[in-house]
Design a binder for these strands. Structure first.
Lengths: 239, 239
DNA sequence: CGCCTGGTTGACTAATGTCAAATTGGGTGG
DNA sequence: CCACCCAATTTGACATTAGTCAACCAGGCG
């Protein structure tokens, strides 16, 4: 896909068939050919440049999003600016469902991001009489909820070192689902993002990375880490 | 409902019609009379005594539960015994959906609890071709997820005092939905439960209650608190 | 009456946050 | 190609919050 001149662009020539690498994983993964065609007609394929907002907390939630490519950070802010990142969205993830008619969190791109965007109304009409789709939405929501609960345990009850180790293990597993297993875990998000995800400060995250490196559990490389001792590492992160 | 002699009992005479106070709020709230009758035939009405397990993390998830009466704590444990309470379930709440085929958390009663219990298979077969039910399941999951995200913000980014204040405000709102607005907020869970929900120690929770009382924001009463200054209080808890 | 459980208080400690300075590395213009 | 600049990260010294450990207190029940 060409990198377009302006940051946010509707991709005219995009076809799921040829351009989407995560069909099987995404919300649309179980649609038959005919239904998928109808579904695709509801979608707008949009590309965002780095650090752009997909949507913001408290905005009227007029759209839902299926992330196709790139990584997004999802977060909530307190009035004084404190930020909690509630998750990182990867290709295949489904975003934008809200309990009321407004988004309950904000989402923005980290690097470049491509999404399928659906207006809420047509999307809901499409799924409302398709049990397959509804069941799949339920699976997605249940998985998200379980991840959120794991994160509550991490935030409430783990030490800084355990948080960082668990984060790296969890992130490696999520990447493995997409790209297969690798020794080097790429970290496209910055230290501040990791800190805001783990409920720590950037300094504590930095010190903890350094400590793990001194203890020969990892090696810090540009935009990622290499895991040296997966066994000892998983033990640190253990549930 | 009579308090039965043995802690866990199947209630033979139970009929949703006459005994269930939360039909409108529960998962079954939008079923028509005929469908509800079919649905009720799938249910077992079970009563638990205080501090009994409804289900435990990692057990095979053979049932789902609709809480009718009482309060349950939902929690996860680390191998060394540290506990994080991920939520308190109230009447109308729906429990036991898991991403795999095992529960991802444990649930037990605080005081006495009554539930509708459904075996997973028949339950899934009932809902799988009923878009109404699936949509409602989605609403429940979305609401849960949003609550979990609020809690992540609280756990990761709020001070002890803010945590306690936000907890009391949130709890008061949830009770208000069931019982209407009251000045006195009843707290059926103990201090240790509150601590494990907020990612604090019991001592810090106790000190913080005392501090809020000294500052004339609340009065501590047996099994609850009275909120004296709702405005200043909401400000402390503010999102 | 006194025990038992849950809750509170006090003194001290440890983990993490804060503030400030130094370092690194990538990107750009000369 | 090199020097510089900027942003991100790391490191250090110190402050603060919440945790730990231990004692004390209060109400409910046998």
């Amino acid at each position: 896909m060409p990198h377009l001149a302006y940051p946010t662009t509707t991709c005219e020539g995009f076809r799921c068939e040829t351009h989407c690498a995560v069909r099987g994983l995404a919300i649309c993964g179980e649609l038959g050919p005919a239904e998928h065609e109808e579904f695709e007609r509801l979608a707008q394929h949009v590309r965002y440049g780095p650090k752009e907002a997909l949507f913001s907390e408290d905005e009227v939630a007029d759209s839902v999003y299926s992330l196709i490519e790139g990584i997004a950070r999802l977060y909530k802010l307190l009035p004084d600016g404190r930020r909690q990142i509630i998750g990182f969205a990867l290709p295949g993830d489904f975003l934008g469902m809200a309990p009321g008619n407004r988004y309950s969190f904000s989402a923005d791109s980290i690097g470049g991001v491509t999404v399928c965007k659906f207006f809420r109304g047509p999307f809901l009409r499409f799924i409302e009489n398709r049990p397959q789709m509804l069941l799949r939405m339920n699976d997605f929501a249940t998985r998200e909820l379980s991840l959120a609960q794991d994160q509550m345990l991490l935030l409430g009850r783990r030490s800084a070192e355990e948080k960082v180790a668990a984060f790296l293990v969890g992130w490696r597993e999520r990447l493995a689902r997409l790209e297969g297993v690798t020794k080097t875990v790429s970290l496209p998000m910055g230290r501040q993002d990791i800190a805001d995800f783990l409920g720590l400060t950037i300094e504590t995250v930095s010190r903890t990375f350094t400590k793990l490196e001194r203890e020969k559990l990892i090696v810090i490389v540009p935009d990622g880490v290499r895991v040296l001792d997966p066994k000892r590492f998983d033990a640190l992160a253990a549930a």
